[in-house]
């Protein structure tokens, strides 16, 4: 190979690598990103079986049932519709009835959402951003007045 051919081969190799990385990134964005839904949006959504999504809303008061061992079920509501959720594991410290929550998992054919993670909150005044925005859109939840929360 001449010097020019070698240089072309090196540049070509780098371009192939960059192309592969770009293709992989786009593929992964399509396949591995999970969309966020509120209960009311869920019916309109066309989900493929087993697709991972995030379901957010408020924990419906009176819906928390503890099963055997570490099983727990509750309902997530946006005050319009509500979706039953099952989860096995430890709930976050600030998981309470009437509080905002985000769960991640898959929606079963029976309409029960099987969550494998329930997102913890870091602060008692913190409402998950997606939930807060959606609730604000629906006019259900108002931002706390400045001074009482930050």
């Amino acid at each position: 190979m001449t010097r020019k051919q070698k240089r072309l081969a090196v540049i070509g190799g780098a371009l192939v690598f960059l192309g592969a990385a770009t293709a992989l990134t786009f593929y992964a964005l399509g396949q591995k990103a999970s969309y966020f839904f509120m209960p009311a949006d869920l019916q309109a959504a066309s989900l493929s079986p087993g697709q991972r999504i995030r379901l957010g809303g408020l924990v419906e008061p009176g819906s928390i049932r503890r099963g055997q061992g570490t099983q727990v079920s509750f309902a997530v509501t946006d005050t319009d519709k509500s979706v039953p959720v099952t989860y096995t594991g430890i709930l976050p410290d600030l998981f309470r009835e009437g509080q905002g929550v985000i769960t991640e998992g898959t929606l079963g054919a029976d309409g029960v959402f099987e969550a494998d993670s329930v997102l913890a909150k870091h602060d008692e005044t913190y409402m998950p951003k997606e939930v807060a925005d959606s609730l604000k859109e629906k006019g259900i939840w108002q931002e706390e007045t400045p001074g009482s929360g930050s």
């Binding site: 990385a21 992964a28 990103a33 925005d133």
Partner: peptide, 18 residues
């Protein structure tokens, strides 16, 4: 206006092979 989250599955598939 779509809300998505990109977590470990995405990065395992992209950052890992690179």
């Amino acid at each position: 206006g779509d809300k998505i989250s990109v977590g470990a599955p995405f990065f395992n598939l992209t950052f890992g092979p690179v």
